[in-house]
Nucleic acid binder design. Structure first.
Lengths: 147, 147
DNA sequence: TCCAAAACAAGAATTATTCTCCTTTTGTTC
DNA sequence: GAACAAAAGGAGAATAATTCTTGTTTTGGA
């Protein structure tokens, strides 16, 4: 499930650069958290990251996972999402994009924002409110659940 | 801040009808929660509902407020806005509309969906996914927090 | 009026997350 | 490469939002 060596190494170098900018250090635990997020297609919870990273760094604590996820969000290496239910989820992508969510199975997918951006800009907030970002989810039924 | 007597009474009758459909009872506490939500422009948290309803029903407990909010959501008298950042908020509206949310103070406002709807329909999901609803938030700074 | 179901209050429990305290590691400087 | 300050780690306590539990009261229909 891990990316190929070269690509992975490149990701970690990029991460180090981003950490450096804010005076953050690269650690084994941090690299493992980032690496795990790079290796999965979906958007896992902190708990899920913890359980998986533990296999590579058995002594890592849940608090460390949380602190690292926070640090990675702060240096814009990953982004934090919420599906609206319990726990927050983390996404290796930091570019502007949205999500589709299946109301039946709960799974989510990325939605390319290319067309969305200009469409969203047509929607105006109340006077005096300055918009800095959009959050958009399309809710419905996925291919599998429609059967 | 309360609605005029007639309108308020009508709202409560409507609520009783919705509760009846699911075998729910009308109580002083439940009416007060609903009434408070009807009386405000913004979308308060459970805590905020609790503190305000307490002024009318001093012995109400926070758990009761939560249970009533849940019951009102279940009978579709109100809706719950949970985007995962901090506490959930509750909205007397159940029709299709969107929200603005201030990143500084956390408050939320309604955003009329009239223009939004056609704009959102331009955004296409992955093939095979059937969209039944949109969730949209504009994030930014409100008038007060910009100062 | 009576009764079963529903709802109440109070507080304990749970869940997700953050904080505290003390130890270890990192990266920079000599 | 040793020394050092800052950053990060680990373990578990603390916090915040929400839900559950227990025993009591209220509601609405018979």
């Amino acid at each position: 499930m891990q990316e190929s060596g070269g690509k992975r190494k490149k990701g970690l170098e990029e991460l180090r650069r981003k950490l450096d900018e804010r005076g953050g250090h690269m650690t084994q635990q941090r690299a493992a958290v980032y690496d795990y997020l790079s290796s999965v297609e979906h958007h896992p919870t902190a708990e899920e990251v913890f359980l998986n990273v533990k296999r590579q760094v058995p002594k890592i604590s849940l608090a460390t996972v949380y602190k690292n996820l926070e640090a990675l969000v702060a240096c814009e290496a990953i982004s934090k999402l919420s599906y609206g239910d319990g726990s927050a989820r983390y996404d290796i992508r930091t570019d502007h994009h949205y999500h589709t969510r299946c109301l039946s199975c709960g799974r989510m997918w990325d939605l390319e924002a290319a067309r969305g951006k200009s469409a969203l800009e047509q929607i105006k907030p109340q006077p005096g409110f300055t918009v800095s970002d959009f959050r958009l989810e399309l809710l419905g039924l996925c291919k599998d659940c429609k059967k």
